[in-house]
Structures are given as structure tokens and as C-alpha cells.
Write a protein that binds this DNA or RNA. Structure first.
Length: 585
RNA sequence: CGGGAUGUGGCGCAGUCCGGUAGCGCGCUUCGUUCGGGACGAAGAGGCCCCCGGUUCGAAUCCGGGCAUCCCGACCA
């Protein structure tokens, strides 16, 4: 490709509203342009890179038995109504009417379509296991797109769906994806860690998220370097510091003026926060049958911990949780700031599993300015649910090995779910097993966002001058910069490289050297050839890796083979990172 | 959905407080000079100042109402 003909332009200044480095560089280098919030055009350089990323995905999916299909972006709403997600999902789903007034859906994912295909195509256990995938546009009307391609509303996703006759088969395909996903990320030059994650509204029994660790990430992860435990904070467990065993003392009400927070209370009584019980008031939306009802949730954790809303929502099987209003708190007989599970009515009481082990806590008295001493679970009150509802944080003890964990932020670049039969049950996607019995097909679903992965590549591989793209996914392998006016050596090299199958971006523009070098650094192709009179005098041209300062002079006759050798070398460097990763639950 | 900010040629910004019909840098076009890390000179092109309404002799500027974009939070199948 001649740069004089390249559709996109580079920009000296990043748009004022770009904050993260991947966004700035991808815009400046001419990869992407924004149309609206979370909606982008992908210009030729991005398109070529995404095609390469997609081809890596195809190779890895095909290698584990995947068959590529293309499913529609526009769905009739019927199948979404059948699985209930038409009703469950809110404004994030794109809905419209066709000309006949029928409800239509813009695809946010494809479980429904897959299950519909399965009920039409799969009749027999002989057709299983199977796995289909596609690389297709998704629309999710996210309330808050951000950070360039990190979080968008319209995006391309590689999503695959495993279909099995039994749970062992699902486990096998799940594990195959587990490794294939690491291969994809490594081949794209993005280091990823797999963490256990919440299954959320997807349902199912197991899920992993692949995270690229970066401060700009939106998820918080708990990591243990000692034993390798990793988990999204939403579900991360930890060993809770145990309380000293004591005999239960008599309940006693005392005046504690102006102690609305746990810190105030602990200071006032001169006790550690671990000797107090913290009350958190939430309202949960819980589906009962076909109805959504709101229930007041009174959550109790020890004063030295905080509530994890995801764990709490899972403990009460809530679809949504929100903080309770003061009036609602008073209505159940509690008092904001002085809440106690003793004597409240019409509330679902959920206590953290550390509470029954912790005797003689100080808890509110449901009366402003008063607390109870020596509150004991079981004797003084009982809960509807006892579960782990506390959030893990920096320094908390690893649930596996007990060593301190630390937190990190991460961007979710992929996820894998064991779905089970939720969708196949709903759509009646069944097969006949060996015994002639009808059974639902068991599904898994697996997704990677292509654009988000590109953003993470840019986030990971750059310097102050621009992008430094991995050879495996760079739009072109070589940036050929011509500085010489007299010689036509560059034209010849361009022709020779193309004839040899090397992908070249040829800067044939009539510009100054500085502009060309800066553009080359900004776009970040892995190799740069500089054709200038300086090296031509010595009978050669310069060859330089973008990720290195040093260049070497290669004789004109050897440049093609030298480039091919460098490409092989850089490809080998990437492939060294593609290794088997032990499966961790 | 809460909180904050911004909207002025393709990009980055000034002008808005204090009203008088728009300016700078980059980029773009033409000519000349230059040519190894974002050159120089000369001459040009390009703007419904986000939209609608109001105040005023007169609005980019003041007032009201929208919309859009970004950031923080809530949310995220």
C-alpha cells in the first residue's frame, strides 16, 4: 500500500475527549474514527489488524473442532420472549419494529439463535458434540461507553457455542476453549489471566473471565502470587480473620450518642471494629414466578468487613439490588445508623458467615443513640440466609493458601460460560440419546470482543512515539520509508517485497524525513526500512525493528531475505508465549 | 439514572466574565526554496460559533429550554 493513497490520515493532536493511551493512539494513527458515543468506524489499518485477529480466532476455533457460521444481527423478538430475556433485559437491548409492527431485536448475543438452530438441526446424540462460532456485530446499548474501544455499544465479537449430550462433554469443550483463548490472546501479544467470575444472569455452573491487567480496567481482581488464586472481586473469597472464642454474655442496651458509623462506635466504646456488627440496608428485586417483587434485605457483616453486593444478590437470588431509602428502613422497624437485626419485621435477614462465629458483638438497638452489647447470633436473632457476603480486598487472606492477596484492575477481554440447558430447555432444543430418551442439549458459550482486544494490544504495546504492533496482527509487516529523491531503489524494494509476499506500507510521499519517521513510529508497524542516500552510498538500506533503537544496513540484494528473516524471528518470539496453561477452576 | 465538565473550519485551542458579526497553531491547495527525526517564504480555500426560542438597534458572548460528547459513580446479558 502506498501511503500517498492510504485513506486515513495521521493526526498530530489527539481529540480532546480521548483520555486513555489506546484511544489517543488509535485515533492519531488513523485506525479508528468515532461516529457517536461507543460507535466507531474502523479505517483500513484497523480493518486489516482486525482481520488478522479474527483469522487467529478462526484458526484456534477450528483447531478445537469449531465450525464457522454467520448468524443474523437482527432477530425477531419471538425467541427472546421464549427464553424470557426480552422481559429481563432492560434498556441495554436494542428494540424496534419492522414494517409490520413486529417486535425486533438487535443481537446482543446469540444464545437464542443458537438454541433455535439446534432445535431445528440437532435430532440425535450422533450429531453431538458440536461447536459453532461466528464473528459478528453485537449491539449493547451500554449506559456508559468509555475509553475509546475499551467499552463501546456496537462491536464485533467472536462468540462460540458448544453443544453436548452430557456434562462431561461440556467440560471437555469448556477446557478446550480455556486453552484456545490463552492461545488467541498470546498470539495477539496480550497477556491475560483467567479469573473465576460471577455467572450473573447468564446462569450456568461455571464461568471464567480473561482479564488484561491494567489500571484503566473497570473490574477489580483479587490475586494471590503464592498459590495462583485469581478471582473477580465480585466472587472472590477470602479467609476471614476469626474471632476469639468467648462465652456469650448477657444482652445489654447502652447509650452511644452520635455513633452513626462503625468507626465512631468503635472509637466511642474503645473496641476493635471486628467486635461490632455492621448493618446494610438494601432493596432487592426478586423474581417470583413471572412477577418481579421488591424485598427489603437486611444484611449484616462484621464491622471490619464490607458487603459485596454481587455475593449478596446471589445469596438472595436477586435480579437487582439498590440501597434502601431511609423511609423504607424505618418502615421495617430499624433505625438508620443504629440498625439491628433484633426485632425487625418484613425484612429478609442475611448475615455473613463470619457472624455466627463471632460472639458478643456490638449492634444497633434500632433506636437513635443506642446500641446493644453482647449480641449473639442464634440466641438474640436468626437470619433467613447465612452466606459469604463480605467483599475481599487488598491484604485479605487467600482462600486457598492463606497468604495475603492483592488487588489489580483489569479489562475483561473474553469470557467462557458453562450454560447448561437454560436456553435449550426454554426453546425445546432436544435430542434423542442412545436409549431413545429426549434430552436437552447442553450448551456452553464463549466470547471475545475483537475491538476491545485491539484496544488492549494498543494499551500494552506503545511508547511515547506511538504504537508498537506485534508482527502477528500488524496491518502491514514493513513500513518502507523513502527519503531519496534521486534513487528509485525504494520502488524496486517495494515491488520485490510484494512479490515475495511481504505486506508493505510504502511511504512514497513527498514529505520531509521527520514527518515520515514520526508517522512510521506512530502507526507502529513492526519493521521499518529506510531508503536514504546516506545508506545507499554504502550500497544498502536501513532495517530497524520498531521495538528496538538499533538499525542495521542491509545490502540491496539481501533486503528481501533479511526482512523475511526478521519476520520469522519476530513471529517466533510471539509463538514462544503460546504455551499450555494449567486449568484452574 | 445521579454528580461534574465541554460544545467555535478536518484536529488542537483562544475569544464568552465585560454584547458590536470570528481568530491562532497544525492540517489542506498552489508556487518557489529545502530534504535523515514533525523545514521556510509567498499566495489561497475552508466556519449554520451544537440546536430552538427569548432579551437587545445588534448575540459565539446574556437568559430559558433542548441535544450531543467526555469524566466520576450506579449499571454491565
Amino acid at each position: 500500500m502506498r501511503m500517498s493513497k492510504l485513506f486515513s490520515q495521521t493526526l498530530r493532536d489527539a481529540p480532546g475527549d480521548a483520555e486513555v493511551v489506546s484511544h489517543k493512539l488509535l485515533v492519531r494513527a488513523g485506525f479508528i474514527r468515532q461516529l457517536a458515543a461507543g460507535i466507531f468506524s474502523y479505517l483500513p489499518l484497523a480493518r486489516r489488524t482486525m482481520t488478522k485477529i479474527e483469522n487467529i480466532m478462526r484458526e484456534e476455533m477450528d483447531a478445537i473442532g469449531g465450525q464457522e457460521v454467520t448468524m443474523p444481527v437482527v432477530h425477531s423478538a419471538d425467541i427472546w420472549k421464549e427464553t424470557g430475556r426480552w422481559y429481563q433485559i432492560g434498556s441495554e437491548m436494542g428494540r424496534f419494529f419492522d414494517k409490520n409492527g413486529r417486535d425486533m431485536v438487535l443481537a446482543m448475543t446469540h444464545e437464542e439463535v443458537v438454541a433455535d438452530l439446534v432445535r431445528k438441526e440437532i435430532q440425535s446424540y450422533r450429531q453431538l458434540p458440536a461447536m459453532i462460532y461466528h464473528i459478528q456485530t453485537k449491539w449493547r446499548d451500554d449506559p456508559r461507553p468509555r475509553a475509546g474501544l475499551i467499552r463501546v455499544r456496537e462491536f464485533t465479537m467472536k462468540d462460540s457455542y458448544s453443544l453436548d449430550a452430557d456434562w462431561e462433554g461440556l467440560d471437555k469443550q469448556y477446557r478446550a476453549h480455556y486453552q484456545a483463548y490463552f492461545n488467541i490472546f498470546n498470539r495477539c501479544g496480550v497477556p491475560a489471566v483467567a479469573v473465576g467470575s460471577d455467572v450473573g444472569m447468564m446462569g450456568g455452573s461455571m464461568a471464567h473471565e480473561y482479564m488484561y491487567l491494567t489500571p484503566i480496567g473497570e473490574d477489580t481482581l483479587l490475586l494471590c502470587d503464592h498459590c495462583g488464586y485469581t478471582a473477580n472481586r465480585q466472587i472472590a473469597e477470602f479467609q476471614k480473620p476469626s474471632a476469639a472464642a468467648e462465652d456469650a454474655l448477657p444482652l445489654e442496651k447502652i447509650a452511644t450518642p452520635d455513633t452513626k458509623t462503625i468507626e465512631d462506635l468503635a472509637n466511642f466504646l474503645n473496641i476493635p471494629t471486628a467486635k461490632t456488627a455492621k448493618a446494610v440496608f438494601m432493596v432487592a428485586t426478586i423474581t417470583e414466578g413471572t412477577e418481579d417483587v421488591e424485598k427489603f434485605v437486611f444484611a449484616v457483616v462484621r464491622g471490619d468487613m464490607d458487603v459485596n453486593e454481587t455475593k449478596l444478590a446471589n445469596a438472595v437470588k436477586a435480579k437487582a439490588l439498590r440501597p434502601a431509602h431511609d423511609e423504607e428502613i424505618v418502615a421495617i422497624g430499624a433505625e438508620p445508623g443504629y440498625g439491628s437485626p433484633i426485632g425487625v419485621k418484613n425484612a429478609l435477614i442475611v448475615v455473613d458467615d463470619a457472624i455466627p462465629e463471632s460472639p458478643n458483638l456490638v449492634a444497633g438497638a434500632n433506636e437513635t443513640g443506642f446500641h446493644y452489647l453482647n449480641v449473639n447470633y442464634g440466641r438474640d436473632y436468626r437470619a433467613d440466609v447465612v452466606a459469604d457476603i463480605a467483599v475481599a480486598g487488598d491484604g485479605d487472606a487467600c482462600p486457598r493458601c492463606g497468604k495475603p492477596m492483592y488487588t489489580s484492575r483489569g479489562v475483561e477481554i473474553g469470557n467462557i460460560f458453562k450454560l447448561g440447558t437454560r436456553y435449550t430447555d426454554a426453546l425445546g432444543a432436544t435430542f434423542l440419546d442412545k436409549d431413545g430418551k429426549e434430552k436437552p442439549v447442553i450448551m456452553g458459550s464463549y466470547g471475545i470482543g475483537v475491538g476491545r482486544l485491539l484496544a488492549c494490544v494498543a494499551e500494552e504495546h506503545n511508547d511515547e512515539h506511538g504504537l508498537i504492533l506485534p508482527i502477528t496482527i500488524a496491518p502491514y509487516q514493513v513500513h518502507l520509508v523513502n527519503l531519496s529523491k534521486k534513487s528509485n531503489a525504494a520502488e524496486e524494494i517495494y515491488a520485490d517485497l510484494q512479490a515475495a509476499g511481504v505486506e508493505v506500507l510504502f511511504d512514497d510521499r513527498d514529505g520531509s524525513p521527520g514527518v515520515k519517521f514520526n508517522d512510521a513510529d506512530l502507526i507502529g508497524l513492526p519493521l521499518r526500512i529506510t531508503v536514504g542516500d546516506r545508506a545507499l552510498k554504502k550500497g544498502g538500506v536501513e532495517l530497524k525493528r520498531r521495538d528496538s533503537r538499533d538499525s542495521e544496513i542491509i545490502p540491496l540484494t539481501e533486503i528481501v531475505s533479511a526482512v523475511q528473516a526478521k519476520i520469522a524471528e519476530m513471529t517466533a518470539e510471539i509463538m514462544e508465549t503460546v504455551v499450555e496453561v494449567p486449568f484452574k477452576e
